[in-house]
């Protein structure tokens, strides 16, 4: 299994570096068009969630992004250093449909576009959100299984 581990300080200015890394990974996985967009979207949602809700935009805290992949699967772990609890993220009821609300769609996109997502506490504190895809078919295959 191949692996790339990255860390980002939780400040807005680091988002460019983050996106650059995700696009590079999409290139490695030979994703293009809609697949590429969905891949970046899911990781972006998890990263933004870690930045806003996990680390509460605290510039002293770090977000780790770990990519692991082989010929048939890819897993991306996004870890924050916040005080959130895994059960505060309601994967079961999350939906991308939020009428005319200004928020609440991010986790819904993950459910829609990833094959599986999992949220768990880290031993060091903070949360780890893991996103899985099967490669080969179109990324992603909807109708996933979420677990917390």
């Amino acid at each position: 299994m191949n692996q790339v581990k990255l860390s980002f300080k939780a400040v807005s200015g680091d988002f460019d570096e983050f996106y650059q890394s995700v696009y590079e990974m999409a290139d490695r996985l030979k994703l293009s068009g809609t697949e590429r967009f969905r891949f970046v979207l899911c990781i972006s949602e998890a990263f933004t969630n870690a930045f806003v809700h996990g680390n509460k935009q605290d510039p002293s805290k770090v977000i780790n992004v770990n990519f692991r992949w082989d010929e048939s699967t890819v897993q991306v772990d996004i870890e924050d250093e916040g005080a959130g609890k895994a059960d505060q993220i309601d994967l079961e009821h999350a939906t991308a449909v939020a009428a005319d609300q200004t928020g609440g769609r991010g986790i819904g996109f993950l459910k829609e576009y990833a094959d599986r997502i999992k949220v768990e506490p880290r031993d060091e504190g903070g949360l780890r959100m893991s996103i899985y895809w099967k490669l080969g078919d179109n990324i992603p295959i909807s109708g996933n299984q979420a677990s917390a």
Binding site: L41, A96, T102, G103, R105, F109
Partner: peptide, 13 residues
Amino acid sequence: DFINSSGLGTLVS
């Protein structure tokens, strides 16, 4: 070339 839930939320707002 990219929009996520934050961008959508801003457009709604």
